[in-house]
Nucleic acid binder design. Sequence first.
DNA 1: CAGTATCCATCAGGATACTG
DNA 2: CAGTATCCTGATGGATACTG
Lengths: 111, 111
Amino acid sequence: MDAPMDNDGKLKCSIEYTLKKIGGKWKTVILWHLNVDGTLRYNALRRLLPGVSHKVLSQQLKELEEDGFIHRVQFNSIPPKVEYSITDFGKTLMPILEQMHVWGTEHGSLE
Amino acid sequence: MDAPMDNDGKLKCSIEYTLKKIGGKWKTVILWHLNVDGTLRYNALRRLLPGVSHKVLSQQLKELEEDGFIHRVQFNSIPPKVEYSITDFGKTLMPILEQMHVWGTEHGSLE
DNA sequence: CAGTATCCATCAGGATACTG
DNA sequence: CAGTATCCTGATGGATACTG
């Protein structure tokens, strides 16, 4: 292996690093949607992810934002409005997501 | 989105299907090693994954085998000997892992 | 509308000891 | 050597109610 190894048992491989970043249950799908649709409001996003709760969605969005993958714009209007979009950095993940999408489409049955 | 959706809130997107398959903490790394090294015995694999326990390693290996990603050959010798290798089907995951590896290498600091 | 706050369930993952 | 068998823990995710 060529990735940075450490002896504290923390990071063993660059693949693991990537997995840690996008391994959240909804992160890949959120990024995928934002990349396709461009910009989405909170509730629009929520409707696209059947089953996600408020807590989890905002959590995942916050982490994605902290990692620089998505951009959050808040309009101080009434009613409130928040728009999410993917950043250029977030787009660097697209090759991975595309491969995952291709594979999942080819091999994922309806289970 | 184009992937199969269902109304039970089970599978929403083919990306999620993929993530479910390889999202285990060690699965990607195991596959990566097996693809690089060809064939590895149980303990050799263990040495390559600092921090993994017996239980978790055999669990992940079993799941990978059940999913058809890896091949397990057991020699009924004394002492016992078991060899793991990646299957052709497992190799279909390589484009994903390669992209993950590239991204992780480029953006993963040592944290 | 777009979130927190709270509380709870689940389970993947880990430590350790034992076994064929 | 290559595993199970137990037991345990913390992180992740979920339901629901409340809020600016």
